[in-house]
Design a protein around this nucleic acid. Sequence first.
DNA 1: TGGTTGACGACAT
DNA 2: CATGTCGCCAACC
Length: 105
Amino acid sequence: MRAKSAGSIFALVHAWVKKVPRGKVVTYGQLSDLVGGRLSPLAIGWALRAKQDLPWQRVVNAKGGISTDGDVPGLQRRLLEKEGVRFGPDGRIDLDRYRWHPRRL
DNA sequence: TGGTTGACGACAT
DNA sequence: CATGTCGCCAACC
């Protein structure tokens, strides 16, 4: 299992995303740091691209905005609002308030 | 094999 | 605050 191979890293990213509690969000940068900084924020996107059973809607960019339309425009925002996340007039959320603070192992 | 793209971030100007 | 540049890793052509 190549330690540097993306396989395990991807799984790690998936694991972290699954840990994000309802009503909270994390940024790509945070995930990048969580996996040890071995994956650039861009690579995180690739990891989530396989969004299979992950709460991918809880992953937003550093500005607290949604950068992806996914397959269904507006889906992510709708899902988050359903979890109690409030969007501002700019279509962004208050990261200061909704950002999830993970506990490192 | 090599170059480009992409669900990004941080910093400089 | 807006724009431009670099860094970053993986997938795609």
